[in-house]
Amino acid sequence: MTEKLPRSVVEPKNPRLNVSRGANLPHVPGIRVGDYIFLSGMGPIDPRTGERNHGPIAEQIRTTLSNMRHMLESADSSLERVVRVHVVLADISDMAEMDRVYREFFPVDPPARTAWSMQLRFGNGCEIECVALAN
């Protein structure tokens, strides 16, 4: 394995979802390296406005996972190609509700997942990151 694996930036087709670039943060939305796509943690951003969506947690999860789907599809991958997910919640008591919405996005053969709770920035109720296979 002496040859260098190609490494490229994953960016959403919808520029409103390019949060890190928009806020001048020192990270990219995702990196593709070889067959793998590593996405940064994503929060609940309204794809129409680029603003944070702080509605009920179910809505925040749905928004975040919809955006994750968009991000993966922008990189020619898909939710079906996700192998590992981290779900971080601001409030541990949102776990069941998170899981209820999460199932809508991964109805069969879901990825490995770990979920926990800790402090999140900007009043976000969730942050979700994943590793996916490229197509």
Partner: peptide
């Protein structure tokens, strides 16, 4: 909604 072991590549 969670698989226990997933192979990817």
């Amino acid at each position: 909604a969670v698989s226990t072991v997933v192979r990817g590549g």
